[in-house]
Computed example of a mutant assay.
Amino acid sequence: LTPALLASLYADGSIVAVKEFSGDVRRAYEIAEIAPGLDLLVGADDVLLELALAGAVGWIAGYPNALPRSCAELYHAAVTGDLTTALPLYRSLHPLLRWDSKTEFVQAIKLSMDLAGRPGGATRPPRHPLAPEREAVVRAATEKVLAEGHA
């Protein structure tokens, strides 16, 4: 949906918010310019900080299922503009957050949940387990975040 179409839908009362998942942070500013009042929700975990700084008012999130405390802390710091807290946390979590934009995001989140002691379990068909090399990447990133005290 283009920003112009979103503005039209907002103007006629058809929508009140939009989940922004394009990865193009510039859209947040364009949407705010042509549809002031349309709530923007972060729709991809790996652009949380950028969209929060651009005025997003919510987060439709995946990775907080695995790391709720640190993701909540990141979100609150981001929307309040507390970059001293948000930026180091975002850098630490970003190798995991970027899985949200990959086809194996459910598998990655569930593996991270298991590693964090929050049962995620196996995915159901049609999803397949992570390939061993992808699992190793998620495992290493999750273990690093947990070792840093983020959960």
Rank of each mutant, 00 (worst) to 15 (best):
Val16Gln: 15
Ala17Gly: 12
Ala17Trp: 04
Ala17Leu: 05
Ala17Gln: 12
Lys19Phe: 04
Lys19Ile: 14
Lys19Gln: 07
Lys19Tyr: 04
Glu20Ile: 09
Glu20Pro: 15
Ser22Ala: 10
Ser22Tyr: 10
Gly23Asn: 09
Gly23Pro: 09
Asp24Tyr: 15
Arg27Trp: 13
Arg27Asn: 13
Arg27His: 14
Ala28Ser: 13
Ala28Gly: 15
Tyr29Thr: 15
Glu30Arg: 11
Glu30Val: 15
Glu30Gly: 14
Ile31His: 09
Ile31Phe: 03
Ile31Asp: 14
Ala32Lys: 09
Ala32Asp: 11
Glu33Tyr: 05
Glu33Pro: 14
Ala35Trp: 09
Ala35Val: 11
Pro36Glu: 00
Gly37Phe: 06
Gly37Tyr: 03
Gly37Asn: 04
Gly37Gln: 08
Leu38Asp: 13
Asp39Val: 15
Asp39Ser: 13
Leu40Gly: 13
Leu40Asn: 11
Val42Glu: 04
Val42Phe: 03
Val42Gln: 04
Val42Thr: 10
Gly43Val: 06
Ala44Gln: 14
Asp45Lys: 03
Asp45Trp: 03
Val47Asp: 09
Leu48Ser: 13
Leu48Gly: 14
Leu49Trp: 02
Leu49Tyr: 01
Leu49Arg: 07
Leu49Gln: 07
Glu50Gly: 08
Leu51Asp: 08
Leu53His: 01
Ala54Val: 09
Gly55Tyr: 00
Gly55Cys: 03
Gly55Gln: 02
Gly55Asp: 02
Gly55Thr: 02
Ala56Ser: 01
Ala56Asp: 03
Ala56Gly: 06
Ala56Leu: 00
Gly58Leu: 00
Trp59Met: 06
Trp59Ser: 11
Ile60Gly: 05
Ala61Ile: 09
Ala61Gly: 12
Tyr63Trp: 13
Tyr63Gly: 11
Tyr63Arg: 10
Tyr63Ser: 13
Tyr63Cys: 11
Tyr63Val: 08
Pro64Val: 05
Pro64Lys: 00
Pro64Phe: 03
Asn65Arg: 02
Ala66Thr: 06
Ala66Asn: 00
Ala66Tyr: 04
Leu67Glu: 09
Pro68Ala: 00
Arg69Gln: 06
Arg69Asn: 09
Ser70Val: 05
Cys71Gln: 03
Cys71Ile: 07
Ala72Cys: 13
Glu73Phe: 01
Glu73Asn: 11
Glu73Gly: 09
Leu74Arg: 01
Leu74Met: 01
Leu74Thr: 00
Tyr75Phe: 06
Tyr75Val: 09
Tyr75Trp: 07
His76Tyr: 13
His76Lys: 12
His76Val: 12
Ala77Phe: 01
Ala78Cys: 10
Thr80Ser: 14
Asp82Leu: 05
Asp82Glu: 10
Asp82Arg: 11
Leu83Met: 03
Thr84Asp: 15
Thr85Trp: 04
Ala86Tyr: 02
Leu87Phe: 08
Leu87Gly: 06
Leu87Lys: 10
